[in-house]
């Protein structure tokens, strides 16, 4: 992990003073990791950049709502990023844009800049080590934002089974993180 000049409590206090230098410190130290989270969900660089911008606006405006008793600042920011990304994923614009883009990619694939090997970044890289039935549950729940109830219907699997399998998948994931 990179060395940070300020710990989270100091950073939160600085952000609440709403100085531009506090914002730029936050951005310089966290934009890449949040962008990686967003990109692992959206799998589209342009959309991910737009979403990252939206996420930092939300963080900046909602910093008063952050409660350190409930978790770390980073976790809070990741959850904002994930929720914003899933909102984009669910929007109508995303589907039409993705279709257009896929069309363009087929034409200009030679350059290879548009395609990202998202399987090799973030949590997706870890998840590729899991068994397929666990992989799909994390894919649907974490990366696509489906509720366990929705997954149960989607996979025609009892809700209890979904819950148990998802939790065991997450325990596996923790094991992979510890390595």
């Amino acid at each position: 992990m990179q060395e940070l000049k300020y710990n989270e409590a100091e950073l939160v206090a600085m952000l609440k003073q709403r100085t531009q230098s506090a914002f730029n410190y936050l951005y310089d130290n966290y934009s890449a990791s949040l962008y990686t989270v967003i990109l692992s969900i959206l799998q589209d660089k342009e959309l991910a950049n737009d979403t990252l911008q939206e996420v930092f606006i939300k963080i900046w405006r909602q910093i008063e709502q952050y409660n350190p008793d409930k978790g770390r600042l980073f976790t809070w920011m990741v959850n904002i990023s994930r929720n914003a990304s899933i909102d984009i994923l669910r929007s109508k614009d995303y589907h039409s844009q993705k279709q257009n883009r896929e069309l363009t990619e087929n034409v200009y694939n030679v350059a290879g800049t548009v395609n990202i090997e998202t399987d090799k970044i973030g949590l997706r890289k870890l998840i590729s080590n899991l068994k397929d039935d666990q992989k799909i549950l994390i894919e649907l729940a974490y990366f696509q934002g489906y509720t366990q109830d929705e997954i149960s219907k989607l996979l025609n699997m009892p809700l209890g089974t979904v819950k148990t399998r998802l939790r065991s998948a997450l325990i596996q994931l923790r094991g992979l993180l510890k390595r």
Binding site: A32, S33, Y35, N49, L52, Q53, R72, F74, G122, L123
Partner: peptide, 21 residues
């Protein structure tokens, strides 16, 4: 677990466009 995730999130970083900042 938060710290595990956070450490993982700081590997293989991809930088966003400079225009965002």
């Amino acid at each position: 677990f938060e710290i595990l995730l956070e450490n993982q999130a700081n590997t293989d970083l991809i930088q966003p466009d400079a225009s965002v900042k």
